[in-house]
Design a protein around this nucleic acid. Sequence first.
DNA 1: ACTCGAATAT
DNA 2: CATATTCGAG
Length: 246
Amino acid sequence: MREEDSNWFAKWEEELPSPEELIPLTQSLITPDLAIAFDLRNENSGQPQPQTTPPQPNSSAEFAGDEPARTRKRPRLVWTPQLHKRFVEAVAHLGIKSAVPKTIMQLMSVDGLTRENVASHLQKYRLYLNRMQSGGGGGNVGGSDHLFASSPVPSHFLHPTSRQSSENHFIPSFVQISTQQPQSQFLHRQISAVNFSKATDQPLFLARQSQQQPVLRHLHSQVTNYTEDLETGAKTVLTLFPTRND
DNA sequence: ACTCGAATAT
DNA sequence: CATATTCGAG
């Protein structure tokens, strides 16, 4: 079971779009301590950067003095099943009602993913949901919902009957710690510290290594078992995402 | 000023 | 068809 986890992650990693640009979004959330703790070094120590990146309009004259404005033309985002899955998970945790592009995007925490990307996908996803409840339970799978069909639709997505506000049902969070250094323990301590100190009121810091900058987010959460995994491997990923019963 | 979201464009 | 962009609300 654990292998599966690492597998899905590996795949997920490959899916990451836009390797070049980062959304500055959360940088301000990064505390000095964490910044240090997660000290990202892209020393390609063992993990190359595969990225099935779509053709990027990057030829050769791009970096120069010109700065990588994020207002550049990004390649079309391809919603792979993995990406969509993450999307669904995010929506599920936010609650179908309160899930809006910005929040979803933040939860997904996918490098390079924009609010527009999510908005567009969300629009389509909603249509899919409607079309699905209208069509009744009769499983008429039109030939075009393959992507959406690839990820199970949480039950509460379909019934409008109130209830099920779901917000802090589960704690969506994931942490990627990339460290092959003796830092690992130090790292997890940092995380714990942050988590515990603010646990009462909230935030836990989510971290994920990206190209050059760490992306950290805070969510109210109760981290459960990351230490375990952390100790286990040098490079570990733990996801406390859905997992109802596990 | 910002973000949603339906409509529209590519 | 899938994704992007536009643009009028709130």
